[in-house]
Amino acid sequence: MSRFPKIVYGLFLASLLTTPAKAHQDSTAYLDLVLSDDGATARLEVSLEDLDYALGLNANADRKLDWSEVQAVAPRIRRYIEAGLTLVSADADCQIMQGAFSVNDRRHGDPYLVIPLDLTCGGASPKRLTYELLFTHDRRHRVKTKIVVGDEAVTEVLTNRNRVLALPVQARN
């Protein structure tokens, strides 16, 4: 039984993605990162078309990507994300737990794979983010990163030339 929401499943089963897609902009991923005293939660969204290009998700090469093809390569996607996303605290690498995949189809008409992330960093807040997904396939790829600390939010853009971001210090009460 898929954990994928049925309504989205029904919408995308026939053709999750017909390549080539038609995007307005350069390849863009989105990372919303909510910092806390003892770790962080995050939501990463990566274009399925970008992932298809990088990992070859469309197994039968019919230029149409369906959810079963995404499910079939989910372990590869997870390993790819694990290898390309690093957060560290002052003392330790963060452990990143990936949640159930879903799809957001409301970004530029281009379906995005949504990956919830739960970070544990040795009881501390992460201090540095390194993002290295997709650059080897698209040098103009970027990730728009929204960092939320308490009531404050800032947005930064990481690019091929600027892959590391120092995160705001999480003040302890």
Binding site: P20, H24, D138, R139
Partner: peptide, 20 residues
Amino acid sequence: RQGRTAGDPRLYSRAETLIL
């Protein structure tokens, strides 16, 4: 060629990434 057909700037970026 695909970029011309689809009008998707990512296709040009990927080509650029291959040839640079």
